[in-house]
Design a binder for these strands. Structure first.
Lengths: 204, 204
DNA sequence: GGTTAATTTAACCATTTGATAAAACACAGA
DNA sequence: TCTGTGTTTTATCAAATGGTTAAATTAACC
């Protein structure tokens, strides 16, 4: 009873540490120690640090993906679908800041568009793109928004939703008196407001 | 004659390497080798790797700051000042992608808002904040835009301007057939379009 | 109990890491 | 020429790194 699943322990611990300190900021010793296992076990199960990192990366992306897919198609009646979509998107980003940080880290390491862990997860991203763009073109057909380039708009929505969580330390540093809880909860409404105004049909 | 300024050589080389591979992705040996100096010289001039990194960081931020301050106040007649501002902002970000990447890297390492290199450059960021917000409140007074929270809006503008350069590898991966040059030059107009529509006064 | 395979461990290795101390160099001015 | 000062190199260090190996332990099945 109560057997411990060392393989999973290693992956979970590694994920946590990689998210916090980046691929190069963590050693296999750190991981082994934090996971309470012997260092050799890491290589026994995952072969190399690189592969462990890729596994942790994919693990995180996949979890995120299933979550976002589930929520994004949950349209509520009454509100414009596009607004629900954006609201859900930012909520999920907020709940998956770790995944976002890891993704951005990997993007920073990417050169010439080549990254092993990113390529491993390419399919996930592609199907995500497909679903996001569908939401946008549906909204356009329904007359909820004016015509805009869907890819550009997708990038804009992601930018607005994601970037604050990266820049948060900076926002705090620059505005020492700010009530950060307040700012954060206003952020969602601000983004919705900006986007809905920016995308709405001209009413003339 | 033609004495070589080793101290500056080290800083410049280190900056380049740190930008590319991150703080933990570069060793002092790498830097010394690339700069064509002895490794011990790095410690002679900068004391530690950490201090060298902080110096490189500040160096980059400062350069960026002077550039942006100069351009941002260059209002052209005819166009709304706010549009000129956004256009200049994205241009400068585009020209300083390295600085942006280094900044984001540092933000990712920041915990509890504490980061030595970031704190070292706090004043720069604060005065930048002041000037950006002034542009926004001026635009509001002139009736160019409706009332919006200036800090939220500042964060949104920065998000839109910066994030694409981080996500570029992903955009390329997800849209294999995309003409990236095209997409990039359209990006500016898309952002302007989205923001000007999102911020404009209601005309009813 | 014995056999076998999966899991876990301790001990070890070569290399690289950040950092130091001391020696060598260059070049002033006295 | 001697001396002092700022610069650069050589040599070296202990610690940490990613990774390996072989032995020990455990679990499972016959």
């Amino acid at each position: 009873m109560s057997e411990k699943d060392s393989k999973k322990d290693i992956l979970d611990t590694a994920t946590k540490l990689f998210v916090k300190h980046g691929k190069n900021g963590v050693s296999t010793c750190d991981i082994a120690h934090a996971a309470g296992v012997n260092k050799a076990l890491i290589f026994y199960y995952y072969g190399s640090k690189e592969k462990l990192y890729a596994a942790a990366f994919k693990n995180l992306i996949q979890t995120f993906f299933y979550e976002i897919r589930e929520k994004i198609n949950n349209s509520e009646p009454g509100l414009p679908a596009i607004e629900v979509f954006i609201r859900n998107h930012i909520t999920i980003i907020k709940e998956n800041q770790n995944m976002m940080k890891m993704l951005v880290r990997e993007l920073l390491l990417t050169e010439n568009g080549q990254s092993f862990p990113l390529n491993e997860s390419a399919d996930i991203f592609k199907s995500l793109r497909y679903e996001m763009i569908k939401v946008l073109s549906d909204a356009r057909e329904k007359g909820e928004i004016r015509y805009v380039d869907p890819v550009q708009t997708m990038v804009s929505i992601i930018s607005l939703d994601v970037f604050y969580f990266l820049g948060k330390p900076l926002v705090q540093m620059i505005n020492p008196t700010i009530d950060i809880e307040d700012f954060e909860s206003n952020r969602v409404d601000h983004i919705i407001d900006l986007l809905m105004n920016g995308l709405r049909k001209d009413q003339e």
